[in-house]
Write a protein that binds this DNA or RNA. Structure first.
Lengths: 229, 229
DNA sequence: GTCGTACATTTGTACTTCAAATATATGACT
DNA sequence: AGTCATATATTTGAAGTACAAATGTACGAC
């Protein structure tokens, strides 16, 4: 019995086919973001389908942020937002446990790998900003405030990397990270009970080198890393 | 003139409102992936809207992978796929130049930061697999084959990290990476003209330690890194 | 009791109609 | 002639109805 001979059945619905056809059309016509596309009726007629089905296919593109539509202005291709859709599914309730752990690790990998970028892109201004966050954290009294500045500190590092995409990505990961963090009951430990403080990291970023910074970052992250490394 | 007093006008379309209402409903009812949701007519009646508009809202959730539907089986919530939607917009033509560069850097950051995971998760079997790729690459003759095994080698590293999410993420990044790579005209250099070969990396992964491996990885990636570090 | 057939239910597709918003054309008034 | 207001046309948004297709369910024959 040759299972490989089983036909990969056409499980495509009408709307699926329309979607594919549109995708092909966009590519073949070499449409760029900003270009406008034919009106619904014309597309429906050209494809030989109802406006209903066509609209559903278009709706998918709209959901993905690939096209925008305005009444009587027709529809235009647009620059999609890489993370807009991800945001909507980035919820601890919706993702599987393994994925949650993977994301937890992913953030740690990013923070360990980002050191070189930080030293390349640091400057007087963003170092001052970082210092200001450290000082505010040191003055903070209650746990909630400390946590707030803790997150701010790490976000500031991504910002200093000058990589907008990575910054947005990290912001997406924060809620997942906190969720896993709490599930591991790591929050029991006092937040400041850490060999390497944010102040240490700041000083090293200012005067040290990437490898030294990474070593300290790994120590700083050790409460999270211990199960991993 | 208090601009803050200006009402943030209801620019929401009917379908937008339905979408929000459904989202709230899912959360309030504490629905988990796998649970089934009421049939279209019931939802439409409960919301006081047409089936048409309701279906468009549902279509968005389907596009995002949050619900699945089968004829006469009704609809069920599902585990969304983090990257499924991202795949569709991950095209050099659709993304802006800055985003493309950011993604290029992102991959480099991942490969530098992943070292600890590799040493934690490496075992006899996946080391053998990696070795096999190295050997195939060394035997390869034409440029196309070399490139193929080059990609395979790096993908294998992500696989060895044991982090499925990161592996999928990296696979998404490959086309972007190659695109930027070619734009930088880095491909002019012969692929093997590298101080540190894949064989070196393999040996270090087998017998060395994370920091040594990272140092060599950075050297290996230096053709890409030179503009960054 | 098992199998097959007929029926019911639910999602998928099509067509029609109207509403709302925007662009274009027309015309009146200065 | 030019500008403003109004009317008209066009295009997307939404509703409703009808039917097709697929799947589950119940009934009945053997």
């Amino acid at each position: 019995m040759q299972l490989t001979k089983i036909k990969p059945i056409e499980n495509l619905t009408q709307v699926d086919k329309i979607e594919q056809a549109l995708q092909e059309y966009f590519e073949r016509a070499n449409l760029q973001p900003g270009d406008s596309i034919p009106k619904e009726m014309d597309l429906a007629k050209a494809l030989g389908v109802s406006r209903t089905a066509l609209r559903e296919a278009l709706s998918r593109f709209k959901t993905l942020g690939l096209i925008e539509s305005r009444k009587n202005k027709g529809m235009t291709l647009s620059f999609p937002d890489l993370f807009l859709n991800m945001e909507r599914v980035m919820s601890p309730k919706l993702l599987g446990g393994q994925t949650l752990n993977d994301i937890f690790e992913l953030r740690l990998v990013l923070e360990i790998g980002i050191c070189e970028l930080l030293f390349k892109r640091k400057n007087i201004q963003n170092l001052l900003e970082l210092k200001s966050i450290v000082e505010k954290e040191e003055k903070a009294t209650n746990k909630k405030e400390i946590l707030k500045y803790d997150i701010e500190f790490h976000s500031m590092l991504y910002k200093m990397s000058g990589n907008e995409t990575m910054l947005r990505f990290q912001k997406l990961l924060i809620p997942i990270f906190n969720h896993v963090y709490q599930e591991l009951h790591l929050e029991e430990q006092p937040l400041r009970n850490n060999e390497i403080t944010h102040r240490d990291l700041y000083n090293t970023l200012k005067d040290g080198d990437p490898d030294e910074f990474r070593t300290k970052m790994k120590k700083h992250l050790s409460p999270y890393l211990k199960d991993i490394i």
